[in-house]
Write a protein that binds this DNA or RNA. Structure first.
Lengths: 232, 232
DNA sequence: GAATTTCATGATGTGTACAACACCAATGGT
DNA sequence: ACCATTGGTGTTGTACACATCATGAAATTC
């Protein structure tokens, strides 16, 4: 798989509204931060990003301002826009809130999965099996993001989804960072995640959205515990 | 109490960093929306706001973009920036999430109140008593905002506070709107709120932050129920 | 030689002109 | 009389020049 400049192509596409272009750039930069392409502390140049995305600084600044509100970057006048440090203690609060909110997805406006959804999830399980056998930490994270976004569809509560998305991307960096520092047993992590996927798959087929939420909650909580253990 | 142009004075103050100016304008415009100075559907002119705050459109646009992320306004190219409609059904989700999250403030990183905090809360109770006797819906809402922000200090969990603040300002308009449409018994609402304040005061003095959270939760839930009843 | 000052450099923040777009009223044709 | 077209007007979105600020290296002074 080669690194294609998909963002430039996508932005060159016509028929995109202003909102879409903004969302695309936001999504792309956020993903780069969470995949550690942009490491914590790294300086993001507005001018460089503007050139890359084929626009001026103004739209880029709007995206960066949003990312700043979301806690992923921080701008300093005269210095630059820096990727925030994924501090463990500070993110513990985010993790704990995520755990509670995830459990809530089963109670607040759950969406019963239809056949198409279950089919898509089956595809994800297959893709996960491939990663267990031969996958990098980065590919796994990318996969984890896709799974998360798919599971988000099971809640119709928009503010809950929006909040969970913010929290997810704030914490996700922590895992990948620990993995790259070899603090985590990658193979074990893959297997655990795959087991979780299969459990969710089972719950989905019985239409039990609340069970899906509980499985997720347990997984997030345990994942954080493993992280906490290895960090000390 | 006269309408003083406090924002212009505050913005004219030196020694304010860029962040502070941004926060001031954000706070001011958000408050105007929630106090229904800017009614749902009303068009906010960037140029007019820029002139009022003594700046150019650029910083105003940043504030409006943030308000758009928070769901209070929505911008349309070539049309304008409109205050979002406080739709009841859509905000029901927000209300329900608020109820759950408020209960969580007692469990996630509660902050035991010190003597100074209790003293400040006593002041609030006194101020509330004055509103019960002779207060407008607007003054009450302003008071409610201050109480909310004070109670927020009882949680050290930053993301939880940030989330609750978003949700609070999204729903607060609904109450004031119903009150102004005379759907609510104002005097009754005042008394109920004052009773809640005194209950919280009692809980604070025994240092039971979790009880404070539960009282809040119950109040928010009941307040929404009264709103729901009167709306039909 | 070390401390201090100065200044060059590059970053974000701001102001402003212009482009893109939506709305509406006036106008012309049918 | 009605409809389509067209242009005027006001809005948000974008590009760019400039202001403001922080940083570090170089020059200067003691």
């Amino acid at each position: 798989m080669t690194q294609v400049p998909l963002t430039q192509e996508a932005l060159a596409d016509e028929g995109l509204t202003v909102r879409d272009r903004h969302a695309l750039m936001h999504h792309e930069i956020r993903q780069r931060i969470c995949l550690l392409d942009y490491l914590p502390g790294m300086r993001l140049s507005e001018a460089a990003l503007a050139e890359e995305f084929g626009t001026s600084r103004t739209p880029i600044r709007r995206v960066l301002a949003r990312l700043e509100d979301e806690g992923l970057v921080q701008s300093f006048h005269g210095v630059g826009t820096l990727v925030t440090d994924a501090d463990f203690d500070a993110l513990e609060q985010v993790y704990r809130l995520r755990v509670e909110l995830t459990a809530m997805t089963g109670r607040l406006d759950p969406v019963p999965p239809d056949f198409g959804y279950i089919a898509r999830f089956d595809q994800l399980v297959l893709r996960g099996a491939a990663i267990v056998q031969s996958g990098t930490a980065r590919a796994f994270t990318q996969f984890d993001i896709d799974v998360f976004l798919t599971l988000q569809e099971l809640t119709a509560n928009q503010p809950l989804r929006q909040t969970l998305e913010r929290l997810y991307f704030q914490t996700k960096r922590l895992w990948l960072r620990a993995a790259e520092e070899a603090q985590l047993d990658l193979e074990e992590e893959f297997k655990i995640f795959q087991h979780q996927l299969e459990a969710i798959q089972c719950a989905l087929k019985s239409g039990d959205v609340e069970a899906v939420a509980h499985i997720q909650r347990a997984h997030i909580s345990m994942s954080f515990n493993r992280l906490q253990q290895k960090a000390r």
